[in-house]
């Protein structure tokens, strides 16, 4: 199955870096959203999105709220979600896991780490 990523981050820089990293590891099918609200709208309108990579601290709807919204929607509840954030405290990571993210990356990350986490998620799903 071809992967189509939804890259969610309010930072233009980070969206580009995640997108470039995806391209460098062989994934070039992705769409972008600047916050959780836009992400939910894209998920609602584009059924081909099958992988979400999201930041945490964002305006409107935060990454954590986005994860909870995805998990509470029957249509999207099984989507793989990878959180990529600056939040690296133990309690943050536990909170994200409690919200049912599939994996977690703390910025700054390498394309290699991104590849490992995507592969881990795909292998376990």
């Amino acid at each position: 199955m071809a992967l189509k990523f939804l890259v969610v981050d309010d930072s233009v820089t980070m969206r580009r870096i995640v997108a470039n990293s995806l391209k460098s590891i062989g994934y070039d099918n992705f769409v972008e959203a600047a916050d959780g609200k836009e992400a939910l709208s894209k998920l609602n309108s584009d059924d081909s999105i099958n992988f979400v990579i999201t930041d945490w601290n964002m305006p409107e709807v935060s990454g954590l709220e986005l994860v909870k919204a995805i998990r509470s929607n029957e249509k999207t509840q099984s989507l793989p979600i990878l959180m990529v954030t600056t939040r690296g405290l133990k309690e943050d990571i536990l909170e994200a896991l409690q919200a049912k993210v599939n994996n977690y990356i703390v910025k700054p990350f390498t394309p290699q780490t991104l590849r490992e986490k995507i592969e881990q998620i795909l292998a376990s799903s």
Partner: peptide
């Protein structure tokens, strides 16, 4: 702009190690 007050540039990836251990 929403922010993380504890954001830091950690190229040793120590926080990633904690995340990996928890996961």
């Amino acid at each position: 702009k929403p922010f993380n007050p504890n954001a830091k540039y950690d190229r040793n990836h120590d926080m990633q190690k904690v995340a990996d251990e928890l996961i």
